[in-house]
Write a protein that binds this DNA or RNA. Structure first.
Length: 241
DNA sequence: TAGGCCATCTGGTCCT
DNA sequence: AGGACCAGATGGCCTA
């Protein structure tokens, strides 16, 4: 990154090509530089004038063939590429919004949206904080129950009756740090032993709360209490299309 | 008005 | 070969 100043730009130092394209573009659609997000979608005018068959033909053409194309045809190809890039960036922003939604900061119409860099930095810190909380929780559990065996350690006697009560009737909620109170999602101990696949992390909704709690207020890790994770097909980023 | 943030365009590179 | 990804460039909008 520090070497950016010394890096040679990938853009041509001579702007003839750009100027050629941009001049025709401006002439054809009144282009005045970058398009504000408040303006109508440039895609609307992207392939105007070309029939769907013509568009398909352009897509099939090789680069060699494209050298023989007219300015208008080259322009249409360029617009199609631009459209794809816009969609890609739009998808990226949708994902960024999704990340903002789960970040522990004030949401609301009167609150300015987190910038992208702030969102990423906050997300990193949030993950680190949750990891630390989880480690601390594990340490406390082992301290409380000692080495009396796995199941006995995690399962209070009440669990033996299998009277799994709804979450709403849980006797003792898990205390959370004041600063993130009510913002922390339920901590699933299933993540300790069975980490979810990346695609599940990306696509599945947050796991449901535990079905019941132990005497210490800790979530019960037994199989009955684990949130049901539906089987998901392998993730393909291109699925968002 | 300067600076931050953002959307968009663009060409290069990598991957399938 | 075509699409995805990346990064530089540019200009608009907003705020201090």
């Amino acid at each position: 990154m520090e070497s950016d100043t010394s890096r040679v730009s990938s853009r041509p130092s001579s702007p003839e090509v750009d100027d050629l394209f941009m001049s025709t573009l401006r002439a054809s659609r009144g282009y005045t530089g970058a398009v504000s997000s408040t303006q109508s979608d440039p895609l609307d005018v992207g392939l105007r004038g070309l029939s769907p068959e013509e568009e398909e033909e352009l897509v099939r053409m090789s680069k060699k063939d494209r050298k023989l194309l007219s300015e208008n045809e080259l322009q249409s190809i360029r617009l199609k590429i631009n459209s794809r890039e816009r969609k890609r960036m739009h998808d990226l922003n949708v994902a960024m919004d999704g990340l903002r939604e789960v970040m522990p900061y004030a949401h609301g119409p009167s609150v300015r949206k987190l910038s992208k860099i702030a969102t990423l930095l906050l997300a990193r810190n949030y993950i680190l904080m949750l990891s630390n909380s989880l480690e601390e929780m594990k340490r406390l559990v082992s301290e409380i129950y000692g080495s009396s065996g796995h199941h006995a350690a995690f399962h209070p006697p009440a669990c033996a009756t299998m009277t799994h009560a709804p979450v709403a009737t849980h006797p003792t909620p898990v205390p959370t740090h004041p600063t993130v109170h009510a913002l922390l999602p339920p901590v699933s101990t299933s993540s300790l032993t069975a980490p979810r696949a990346p695609h599940a992390l990306l696509k599945a909704p947050p796991p449901a709360s535990f079905q019941h709690w132990g005497v210490s207020g800790m979530p019960c890790p037994c199989s009955m209490c684990q949130p049901h994770l539906p089987h998901l097909p392998p993730m393909r980023l291109a699925d968002s299309k």
